[in-house]
Structure formats: structure tokens, C-alpha cells
Design a protein around this nucleic acid. Structure first.
Length: 403
RNA sequence: GCGUCGGUGGUAGAGCGGUCAAUUACAACAGACUGUAAAUCUGUCGCCUUCGGGCUACGAAGGUUCAAAUCCUUCCCGGCGCA
């Protein structure tokens, strides 16, 4: 059972700094959750994750269910122990894969859309690996094509075996191109699934070892988001209710702050709120201001593997030819292992030579950058310097040009 | 020296009379990536362009043809075989 306490609220915003106590340790919030989908943060050892002062690792139910199987992870003592991570843990329910292997499969849609995103027909396209029904999601394994039905119940059962401290209700992550009617229908389904998840979770977890977060959907529509926040928020009142909330689904880059704010304005204040899958610097500032406590995102590690490195001035592409003879660190002021020991030229060489260490060193840097950023955001809330910190950061940080 | 096979864009290597500025791969140059189908994907990759096209190109020089990277001749260079 998790204990959440708020230490400080920032006047004029919904931002707050606090702590979540889990049986595996304390998380100081706001916190960035490192993603280790398959019980590994890609290219990194657990020791390296610890050295970054990461607080929580999140794994994925769909992936671990398929490989190596939830039973094996269970035998290992849970995914944290399995991967030698002994701090707090989370698992995602597999709901995101309803989107990434469903509506998004083979398309270029991402969960964060550009503002000119259009509504499109969401009827199933051939080749998709996920099909959503009221019962659950039928997945065709991306590994071997075998079929697997995920339901709220089976997701809870798998997550129980995976053994994380915090788990998510099974939800449908919708496409940003889905029309209002579909979002509305899907939202009702996600609500039903949340209740089914909660019921099965309470059966499995008699001793309250895991904490269950409900997921708020509703796309980019205010009425749907608010309806979800109200209805799911109401299921967090008693001790058998939800322990926290995930805010999921699709946003437009521009309205991450606002849409998240609609939700958090209505959610119970005393439960942690996890913004699912968001992790770019500007989005983090906006989401904290809108009342979020936790974030997970694959971006820092994926970007790293692809050669895109965070700096206070924005991202740089280490593969650009100009870095081949740049014998300075990625960032002179950065205290990460990579910056303390290596140059841009060395990184550029490792990437060009296709060496695995490139991914590791780049991931260390990007995770350090984001973890440190959220830490600093937390400190700035506690000492009332959030607004100046944000302003200074934004003045210097140039986001990648959109469009 | 004789014979034989070959010389194609940064590299390897297709093409073997028109649909070839030339398949493909790699390299190079840039871009994308937000609950990981992702050590991935996309674009560019002879020169010029008002994006219609124009120009120069397949070892070199000639030639045949309406038309040649593709056929012929000579030369240069390389592999192999025989002397």
C-alpha cells in the first residue's frame, strides 16, 4: 500500500512536491520514471541506472507476458528482482499496445500529435496487431504472430505476477486521430475496464502489496477528460479504491498542459498522478504546473540510441559531421558519467562505427539530463523558484522545430 | 609477347542498343522519434534549374546507328592462363 504525502504546493498553479512511500523505497515527486519495458533499460545495467539516481523503473506487461512470460518473472521474484533493480517499480498494463499495435500500427501517428492533426477513420486496417473489443484487446504477437486476448482481468493477473509496486488498470489508449464519437465510446469502455481491473486486483492482492492506478482517457476533448476524471476519481474514495491515477492517451503538443489541467483540477488531490508517456523538457514543465507527480517516457533512451542528445540549448544530433572533431563533452557543465569521461568526437565515432557503447553512453547522458531536470523542478517548487527556473530554462532551450 | 576476362557514380556491384543520370547495398549528408513492433524509420545523395526541364557523364579516343554504359576499332590500365 502506497503512502502519498504532499510537502509543498506552488501558489497559483497545481504543481506540488511530495513523496510516495512504497515497500521498496521512497519516490520524491515530481519524479521521472525510467522505462525498462522488457525488464531492462535498453543498453544499461541496473548499476548504471542506480548511478543516475533514478527512483523508479517501469516495465511493460504485454512485453514481459510474451517474453519470457509472467510466470518466469514471478519465479524470479518479480521484474525488479529479476533485473537487479531493488527500488520502486511500476508496470504498464498493456493498454498502450492497443494503440501502438492497433490504430497506430504502420501509420506515422504518435500519441503526441502536431496541432494540425486531422480526424481519420479508425476502422481496423489490415495488418494491425491489436483489435479492441469490449471484452479486451486481441493481440497478435509482434514476435511470432500468436494470438493473445488481454482483458482487464488478465492484465491484473499478469501484473500481479510481474510484482511491481504500482500497476495500471487496463485501458484503451486511443489515437489522436480518432473522432469524438469513438473517443466517447472508448472512454466508457476504459471506465468499465477500470472497474473490472479494480475488482480483479482486489481479489488477487488481499494484503495490499500493489497499488493500482486508474487511467484517465478522453483524447483532446474537455468534456470527456472531465467526465473520466470525475467518474474514476470517485472510485478512489475508499481503501478498496484506486491508489492513484494515470493520465493517458493522445494530446496535441500545444495542449498537454491544458488538457492535463482539466483532469487534475477534478482528481482527488491526495492521490499521485502519473502522466503516461510524456518526457520532453517543455512538456514536463507544463505537466508539473498542471498538477502531475510522475512521468515515464521512452524518449530519453530512444533518442539517445538514435544519436539525439539533450543539452540546455536543445537537442543535438551527435551524428552530424561537425562533431567528428569536437573534443569537448556533450555539455561542459554536465556531471554525468559520459560527459565527465568522453568527448563529442568519441560519441560521434562510436555512433558511426555502430558500436553498442554509443547507445549506453548516450542513454546515460539523456537520462541524467531528464532525471536532473525533474529533480530541479522539484527543488524549485520547494524553494519557490519554479517560475524563474522555468523561464530561464525556456529562454535557453530550443525545442526541435516542429513541422 | 600471345590468349582471355574485365574496367560503371565515394565503395562494392547491377545493367549489356532506346523505358538510364543509370537497380541495389554500404558509405556520406540531413531529418524524425513522447505509457519501446524502434541499436529504428524517412528524405537527399553528377552539375544547373523559373522544378517544366537543361547540361555533362559509365577507362581514353575515334566509329556504326535516328538512338550507345550497352555494338565495332585502336590505345591505356588490371586479373588470369600460356610462353
Amino acid at each position: 500500500m502506497l503512502k502519498f504525502s504532499i510537502h509543498k504546493k506552488l501558489d497559483g498553479t497545481m504543481a506540488r512536491a511530495g513523496e510516495i512511500e512504497t515497500k521498496n523505497g521512497v519516490i520524491k515527486t515530481p519524479a521521472f520514471v525510467v522505462v525498462g519495458t522488457k525488464a531492462t533499460v535498453k543498453s544499461m545495467t541496473a548499476e548504471q541506472i542506480r548511478s543516475l539516481n533514478a527512483q523508479v523503473v517501469l516495465a511493460n506487461t504485454y512485453h514481459l507476458y510474451l517474453q519470457p512470460g509472467a510466470d518466469i518473472v514471478d519465479q524470479a521474484g518479480g521484474f525488479g528482482k529479476f533485473m537487479d533493480w531493488h527500488g520502486p517499480t511500476m508496470t504498464d498494463s498493456g493498454g498502450f499496445q492497443a494503440f501502438s499495435l492497433g490504430a497506430a500500427f504502420g501509420n506515422s501517428v504518435s500519441k503526441v500529435a502536431t496541432s494540425d492533426v486531422g480526424v481519420s477513420d479508425i476502422s481496423a486496417v489490415s495488418g494491425q496487431l491489436a483489435k479492441v473489443t469490449d471484452e479486451g484487446v486481441m493481440f497478435k504477437s509482434h514476435l511470432d504472430g500468436s494470438k493473445h486476448l488481454f482483458t482487464p482481468e488478465s492484465s491484473m493477473e499478469a501484473q500481479w505476477k510481474l510484482g511491481a509496486d504500482m500497476i495500471f488498470a487496463f485501458d484503451e489508449c486511443t489515437s489522436p486521430t480518432a473522432p469524438y464519437e469513438y473517443q466517447k465510446k472508448s472512454l466508457a469502455r476504459t471506465y468499465d475496464w477500470a472497474k473490472r481491473s479494480l475488482a480483479r486486483h482486489n481479489e488477487l492482492d488481499q494484503n495490499k502489496e500493489q497499488s493500482l492506478f486508474a487511467v484517465i482517457q478522453g483524447g483532446r476533448f474537455q468534456d470527456l477528460r472531465e467526465e473520466a476524471a470525475r467518474s474514476l476519481g470517485a472510485l478512489a474514495q475508499d481503501s478498496d479504491g484506486f491508489d492513484g491515477f494515470g493520465i493517458g492517451g493522445s494530446f496535441t503538443k500545444d495542449d498537454i498542459g491544458t488538457a492535463v489541467g482539466w483532469v487534475n483540477a477534478l482528481l482527488p488531490e491526495d492521490k499521485p498522478r502519473h502522466l503516461l508517456g510524456i518526457g520532453e523538457p517543455l512538456d514536463l514543465f507544463n505537466a508539473v504546473e498542471a498538477g502531475c507527480d510522475l512521468f515515464d517516457c521512452i524518449a530519453p533512451t530512444r533518442m539517445a540510441r538514435h544519436g539525439s542528445l539533450h543539452t540546455a540549448d536543445g537537442r543535438l544530433n551527435i551524428k552530424n559531421s561537425r562533431f567528428t572533431t569536437d573534443f569537448t563533452p556533450i555539455e561542459a557543465s554536465c556531471q554525468c558519467y559520459t560527459c565527465l569521461h568522453h568527448t563529442r568526437a568519441y560519441l560521434a565515432h562510436l555512433f558511426r562505427a555502430d558500436e553498442m557503447t554509443a547507445a549506453t553512453l548516450a542513454s546515460i547522458h539523456n537520462l541524467h539530463f531528464i532525471l536532473r531536470l525533474v529533480e530541479k523542478i522539484r527543488e524549485s517548487i520547494l524553494d519557490d523558484t519554479f517560475h524563474t527556473y522555468k523561464k530561464e530554462f525556456l529562454a535557453r532551450y530550443h525545442p526541435p522545430k516542429t513541422s
